[in-house]
C-alpha cells in the first residue's frame, strides 16, 4: 500500500479561548484508499485529541461530515485523499453557518426552515391503514424520487451565494424537500406549502446559480427542484387569483 502525504490546514476555533478562528497545520501520512475523513480521524486519534467535528457513517448517507475542503463544500467521508495528493489542503467548517467549535457549525437555522415548509404528507382525508397502500405507479414514484435522496448535509447551503447574502432565504435543501412532497402523488398539501414557499424569502430568493446542485454529494439537483417550484408557485398564484387555489 502506498502512502499519500497530506498537509492539512484545519480551521480551529474554541469560543472559550479564541477571539476568532485560526488555522493549525497537521502533517498526515495517509493510506492511499483513505478519505479526507480518515485523515481527520487520524489527527483526532493520534495527534490532537482536542479537534472537534461531526461524523458517523463513513458511507455518505448520514450527512454529518460536511465541511469545506479546499474551499468546496464536500462530505469528508466521500472526498478521496488521492485527489489532494501531496498538497496543502484547507479544511474549514461549512461556509455560511456560524462556527460552534472547530469544524462544527450551528445548524438550528436549517432545522427551523425545514419544519416551516411542512415536509410531510398532507391529506384532506387520511385513508385507513386497513384499506392498504396508496397505489403509486413506478412513473409517479420516479417523478419525485430524486428529491427524496437529500441527506441534509447542508453542503448546498454552504455553496449557495444567495444564502450567504440573505440568511433569511429558506434555501435549497428545505425547498427541494417541499417540492418532493408537492410532486408526490399521495400528497395534497401544495396549497398549504405555497404560503411559505411564495414568500419573498421563499423560492424567489433563488437566482439559479446552480451551485447547490454542483455541490450536492447525492446528486439530488436541488436547483432543478427550486426552478420547478418557481413554476408551481406561479401557477398556484394565478389559480388563487381566480379562486381555484386548491391543488
Amino acid at each position: 500500500m502506498s502512502e499519500v502525504q497530506l498537509e492539512l490546514e484545519i480551521l480551529r476555533y474554541d469560543p472559550e479561548k479564541d477571539q476568532e478562528p485560526h488555522f493549525k497545520t497537521y502533517q498526515v501520512a495517509c493510506r492511499e484508499e483513505w478519505m479526507i475523513l480518515d485523515a481527520v480521524n487520524h489527527v483526532k486519534d493520534e495527534v490532537d485529541t482536542t479537534l472537534s467535528y461531526r461524523w458517523s457513517c463513513h458511507m455518505a448517507v448520514c450527512g454529518s461530515c460536511g465541511m469545506m475542503i479546499d474551499g468546496q463544500p464536500k462530505l469528508a467521508c466521500k472526498a478521496a485523499v488521492k485527489d489532494y495528493a501531496d498538497k496543502k489542503v484547507r479544511i474549514e467548517p461549512l461556509a455560511n453557518f456560524p462556527i460552534e467549535r472547530d469544524l462544527v457549525v450551528v445548524q438550528d437555522d436549517f432545522m427551523e426552515k425545514l419544519k416551516r415548509v411542512k415536509p410531510y404528507i398532507i391529506r384532506k382525508e387520511e385513508k385507513p391503514i386497513e384499506e392498504g397502500e396508496y397505489k403509486q405507479s413506478p412513473a409517479d414514484l420516479k417523478r419525485f424520487k430524486q428529491f427524496t435522496l437529500c441527506i441534509n448535509c447542508l453542503c448546498c447551503y454552504a455553496a449557495c451565494p444567495e444564502y450567504a447574502l440573505t440568511p433569511e432565504f429558506v434555501g435549497p435543501a428545505a425547498l427541494a424537500l417541499a417540492h418532493r412532497y408537492n410532486a408526490d402523488s399521495r400528497d395534497q398539501g401544495l396549497a398549504e406549502r405555497h404560503k411559505e414557499i411564495s414568500k419573498p424569502e421563499g423560492v424567489w430568493d433563488c437566482s439559479f446559480t446552480d451551485t447547490c446542485s454542483i455541490a450536492c454529494p447525492k446528486h439530488v439537483d436541488p436547483a432543478s427542484a427550486l426552478q420547478q417550484l418557481k413554476i408551481t408557485t406561479t401557477v398556484q398564484w394565478y389559480k388563487e387569483l381566480i379562486g381555484m387555489g386548491d391543488k
Binding site: K127, I129, G132, P138, L141
Partner: peptide
C-alpha cells in the same frame, strides 16, 4: 404489515410494482 403500510401512508418512497402496489 400495518406498520409498513403506515410508513407508506406517511410518504416512504417504497419501490413499486408496475400496478402501483409496493
Amino acid at each position: 404489515p400495518k406498520e409498513l403500510l403506515q410508513l407508506e401512508h406517511w410518504g416512504c418512497p417504497w419501490s413499486r410494482e408496475p400496478n402501483g402496489s409496493v
